[in-house]
Simulated assay, not measured.
Amino acid sequence: MTTYPSLPVSTGYISFTIPSTGQPCQTFYKVIGDLSASKILPLVALHGGPGAGHNYLLSLTDLYDKYGIPVIFYDQIGCGNSTHFSDTMGDENFWTIEMFMSELKNVISHFGLQDTGYYILGQSWGGVLAASFASQVPQPRGLKKVVIASGPASLPLYAEGTRALLAELPEDARKTLEECDKKRDYESPEFNVANMVFMKLHCCRLNEWPEKVTETFENIGKAKEAYMTMQGPSEFIITGSLKTWEGISKAHNISVPTLLTNGRFDSVQDSSMYPWFNEISKVKWVAFEKSSHMAHWEERDRYMEVVGQFLAGQ
């Protein structure tokens, strides 16, 4: 084992089969903590995007440092250190929630967590994945608690919320984004500058973004297949296969204790979080007043306290 920077860390790859590819795939993982020695159940962290990679979730290592909760990070197929598929742009039959759930089940099986028990935290798109997984019938074996962190219950509701946020942007940025959208211009310097105005207000409000957050957007830039196919060209232009997705109709199937988190300035507004609160029976919702989409960085200490106490408590 190495240290990160002074915590036990192990990394490796998990073989994963996607029948339609006709080739072997690998999922990269990083574990903070010693799963064999810990008496506390581990947390499986599901990153956003799709395609963001695990990097920006590494602040969650605080949960091990402060509460002894081991954390299993992994790069979902198509990004980071896992297998990439550069020829799948626009292939909605390949990039599906079901494929990502199969990968998650494979990770859980690799570590034998279905027998020992585990928690899940899904952030942004990862929250959609976590909720989809937890709402299966029967409930996934070994799952004990779920955290849905800024994961919308409905993409139409999410899109409605982002339209309201766009209307409140400074006029020059708003007009630029509107004009670029009309022209389907999502690559120009003008679009990127105006887009960053939105991101600084509603994605991460820290004056200087942590290196791991910056790496997230670099990951998406290097492998856009999943993001473009399922999401679209930006956080507020949803043209991909997820544009009509909703988890509200199955949310009542989530029977384990569930924590919802989002930020006051979040791109995932309260309107798209409320259905989870309304439909899940054992649920708690904490909104972070000084945060947008990344409360795990923006209000890091308080965030870890809220999540740590939820997971570690009885």
Rank of each mutant, 00 (worst) to 15 (best):
V197Y: 04
L155S: 03
R163C: 04
W209D: 03
R163N: 12
A173P: 01
G161W: 02
G221Q: 04
K212S: 13
E187M: 07
A164F: 05
V146T: 07
L165R: 06
A149R: 02
N195T: 09
P140S: 07
K183E: 13
S188K: 05
L201A: 13
E178T: 03
E225S: 11
N192R: 15
F191E: 02
N195Q: 14
C180Y: 01
C180E: 03
A173Y: 10
N207F: 07
K183Q: 15
G151I: 12
I220V: 15
S150I: 05
R205Q: 09
W209A: 13
V197W: 04
L143T: 00
K212T: 14
F217P: 04
Q139R: 07
E160Y: 14
A194F: 08
E190W: 05
K182F: 13
D185R: 04
K212I: 06
K200S: 15
P210I: 12
V197M: 11
E178R: 10
L143W: 04
I220D: 07
R184S: 14
A164Y: 02
T162C: 14
K144N: 12
N195D: 15
E225Y: 01
V146R: 00
R174C: 03
V137R: 10
R141W: 02
L143N: 02
A159G: 08
P140A: 05
K183L: 10
C180W: 00
R174Q: 14
K175T: 06
L201D: 03
I220R: 03
S154E: 05
C203P: 00
P210K: 04
E190G: 01
Q136C: 04
D185K: 07
L166Q: 07
G161V: 06
Q139H: 12
F198Q: 08
F198P: 09
K200E: 13
A153Q: 00
K200V: 08
R205N: 15
L201E: 09
R163V: 00
K175V: 12
E218H: 11
E190P: 00
L155E: 07
R174P: 06
A194V: 06
C203Q: 13
L169V: 03
V147H: 04
K175S: 09
P156Y: 00
H202Y: 11
R163T: 09
A153W: 02
R163A: 15
F198E: 04
P140K: 07
L143Y: 02
Y158N: 07
K212F: 09
L177H: 05
C203A: 14
A167W: 06
V193R: 15
E211S: 13
V137H: 02
F191N: 01
F217D: 01
P138R: 10
A153C: 12
E190C: 07
Q139V: 10
A153E: 02
E179M: 10
R174E: 04
E187K: 09
V193W: 11
E160A: 13
E218M: 11
E190H: 02
G151M: 08
A223P: 06
T162E: 06
P170F: 03
V146Q: 02
A149H: 15
E225N: 10
N192G: 05
D181F: 14
A159P: 00
K224C: 13
Q139C: 15
E187D: 11
M196F: 14
M199T: 00
V193M: 11
W209P: 05
L157G: 13
N207L: 09
A167F: 01
